[in-house]
Write a protein that binds this DNA or RNA. Structure first.
Lengths: 152, 152
DNA sequence: ATCAGTGCAAAACATTTGCAGCATG
DNA sequence: CATGCTGCAAATGTTTTGCACTGAT
């Protein structure tokens, strides 16, 4: 069985894909990739801009969006939309490793990843049944997280 | 077994919920409700504005948004986001009747509803397992519809 | 008559694009 | 040293808000 992909692996993976696609290695692009590699879950473009601002290497907003689009095109970053009209972005590991979906707390906005084999199986079955060539899927569970439920 | 809820039933249901919540019965609001009742699948706010414009009763864009927000709050309309940064809105029937999810053609943008009991069961199981009070869920399958696949 | 409902115009918001200057290969 | 990369500012497109007027109860 293959070793689980790590964040570091992902940064390397992304770097390789960028190089293969003929991209040069600019400072802004690397900064975004490294930040994403460190993150566990999905981030907003504005989150990314803000976090980079606070760190040593600031990156212009337009550049953040441009880099994210490139990474998404290359398939190393996935876009997640959970219903608040903001796009979020997260690392996508090779061969579907660490594939997961999201729980969203409608109270505080927290985003928690989860995975379930039976759910994946059910989706695969549906995908086979319908008159579509299904290539991807998203599942979002909305509710209230334990913290918010306790506070109420 | 209960009779399936019809579009007409939904308009009535929505109207009752609005009345119960103390809303008056304005022309613009009714126009939006009636248009939604006729629709099978999710519409964007701008779709709604345009369709009403073409019909007898035009409704200002701001009003469309305001009405949709009220209806969503009352739980008679659901918001669907399929990844193109537009919110779509669709009727939500009482007691989860006609509950469904969506296939999205990434080529032409077509939206097709589907339902699957096993998928629902899998989701219910996950919902029980996680440290969240899950109240709702969305599933979106992305791919290429039969028409687009044929054209390619 | 009162207060909710509505339209219009302007604002707010994330995201995209144009262009000039910088830096990598 | 040529071309891709980046920042800045302006444009875009959707959604929201302010305010005055209309209409339902």
């Amino acid at each position: 069985m293959a070793r689980a992909t790590t964040s570091h692996d992902w940064a390397e993976h992304a770097g390789r894909r960028l190089a293969d696609a003929g991209y040069r290695r600019g400072g802004a692009r690397s900064a975004v990739v490294e930040l994403l590699a460190r993150q566990g879950c999905a981030l907003t473009a504005l989150d990314i801009e803000r976090q980079l601002e606070d760190s040593d290497r600031g990156v212009a907003r337009a550049t953040v969006y441009r880099v994210l689009e490139e990474l998404e095109q290359l398939g190393v970053v996935g876009r997640v939309e959970v219903g608040d009209k903001l796009s979020r972005y997260e690392p996508l590991h090779p061969d579907g490793a660490q594939h997961h979906h999201h729980l969203v707390c409608d109270r505080c906005g927290e985003l928690v990843p989860f995975h379930d084999d039976e759910l994946e199986r059910a989706i695969a079955t549906v995908a086979r049944r319908v008159a579509f060539e299904v290539s991807d899927h998203d599942v979002t569970l909305h509710g209230v997280c334990a913290d918010c439920a306790a506070k109420a």
